[in-house]
């Protein structure tokens, strides 16, 4: 999937991945896509909730080998 910016939140724990993602999304313009890498198992549900609350669309959420990958489109 294409993306405009990447955030490496691996090794970070709650609430840092969300806070960093919020900041990174702020640097994008509407419609641009942020790719996030994380290792916090709680981040799967947290990013779904974050997307729902903020109106930024969670395009995909995947796990491979204990790493999580999210694509979020800026509203």
């Amino acid at each position: 999937m294409n993306f405009d910016k990447e955030l490496d939140a691996r090794g970070l724990n709650c609430p840092l991945p969300i806070l960093r993602a919020k900041k990174a999304l702020g640097e994008l313009t509407s419609g641009q896509v942020l790719r996030i890498l994380a290792t916090d198992p709680g981040s799967v549900k947290d990013f779904a909730a974050f997307a729902k609350q903020t109106g930024n669309e969670l395009l995909s959420s995947a796990e491979n080998n204990k790493e999580f990958e999210f694509y979020i489109k800026r509203k």
């Binding site: 709650c14 969300i18 974050f50």
Partner: peptide, 11 residues
């Protein structure tokens, strides 16, 4: 600080 910063990030 965790709850406050997260809530603010949620808008």
């Amino acid at each position: 600080f965790i709850l406050a910063s997260t809530a603010a990030a949620l808008g």
